[in-house]
């Protein structure tokens, strides 16, 4: 009886000590995951996800309040890397519909007001006052920040055209 009580006490004491030491040595200040996931996001802070910037979206994905697919400009690539990082099951089927888009300037109604230049997170719009602006296709992420800013609705989102080099075989479909 005594031996049992003793041994259990000793066991409890040792394990408690170990836990205490571990708690001290492996202490983590904040969740480092937030920063890691944020690094995977596009970083344009465009706000299309409905969260305050990419950091907010990263936190929401980690909490589970937002799906990994919540970032439209990031597309499938960001969704896939984030999901792999967090070990989430990924449903890409909802993402394929819209496809990636870019903004294009309707040159007939652009008044050269320069407002869009200031909001573009990637400096993808070039232009000067009273000059027709233009979107650099390679730099546009399709974040739509400029669309709301344009006073004449000259900026319109267009799907990125599919080219021979970028065409992807469709997944086999059957009736």
């Amino acid at each position: 009886m005594l031996a049992a009580i003793l041994s259990l006490t000793v066991l409890g004491a040792v394990l408690g000590l170990l836990l205490g030491i571990a708690g001290r040595y492996f202490h983590v200040e904040a969740n480092p995951l937030n920063a890691e996931v944020e690094a995977l996001m596009p970083g344009t802070n465009c706000g299309q996800c409905g969260f305050p910037g990419c950091a907010g979206a990263a936190a929401a994905i980690i909490d589970g309040t937002a799906p990994a697919t919540c970032c439209p400009p990031g597309g499938k690539a960001v969704a896939a890397t984030v999901a792999t990082k967090l070990g989430l099951a990924l449903d890409l089927s909802g993402m394929a519909d819209k496809g990636s888009q870019i903004a294009l300037v309707n040159e007939e109604i652009c008044i050269g007001c320069c407002r869009c230049l200031k909001v573009c997170p990637t400096d993808a719009i070039v232009g000067a006052a009273k000059q027709i602006h233009n979107v650099l296709r390679e730099a546009c992420t399709g974040c739509e920040a400029c669309v709301d800013r344009c006073p004449t609705e000259a900026l319109v989102m267009h799907p990125v055209p599919v080219t021979l080099q970028h065409w992807v075989w469709p997944k086999p479909v059957f009736a």
Partner: peptide, 8 residues
């Protein structure tokens, strides 16, 4: 995405 990050 990497290019975008550089631009940002």
């Amino acid at each position: 995405a990497e290019a975008t990050k550089k631009l940002v």
